[in-house]
Amino acid sequence: MGEEPSIWEYFTRNWSTGQPGSIDTLLGDHIVMSLLPIVAALAFAIPIGLACVRWRLLYQPTAGLVNIIYALPSLALFGVFLAVTGLSQATVIIPLTFYAVAVLVPAVVDGLRSVPEHVRQSAVAMGFTPLRRLTRVELPLAAPVVLAGLRVAAVSSISLVSVGALVGMGGLGYLFIRAWQIDYFAPAIVGIVGIVLLALIVDGILVVSQRLLTPWVRARRSG
């Protein structure tokens, strides 16, 4: 055996090898498995949140359920889905969607509740139809709170994907297992740096889109 490769060497040697463990493939899987749940969760959380605001009685039971889901250990949930969906990305994507829903439902509810009553009333008085009021007034005003929830959901989803490595679907998390298998730390470092960088980039993109989508919030801070 020759000298052990440096971290950088490990990275370049394993990038784009065309093999299953190639780092670029792992990264691509990681992005899909962490962000697809976020998009799916938003699509679920908005109608659920709307229903909770519309029918107040629904909120407590929904919040309770959502908290229980959030409390379930991810590994256990992955294990359950391994039995259902087998060795496919769905095994990780579905549980992570649950977690993201758990974060986003309260965010949507809080966001909608943050719309001042007099603003809602004046929208009604000006002749907005209910749908238009929702899309032009209530959701835009809820956006800052929802986007804050989205940041939390996205970062925790990126981090949780790696746990999936223990059931064989972990994106960059595979590198931790690899490090343990070959008893050498370089892959683990590459994995950690990769996950942290990915989280930072996604969070940065969300911060920028928050600024672009909600200019009135930024104006308030600097004004």
Partner: peptide, 22 residues
């Protein structure tokens, strides 16, 4: 129909009720 009726009636309230995002 309420939305049609309301578009033809101006309405002003105490807190102005302006849209913060516009």
């Amino acid at each position: 129909d309420p939305p049609t009726l309301r578009r033809g009636i101006g309405y002003v309230i105490q807190q102005a009720g302006l849209f913060p995002h516009r």
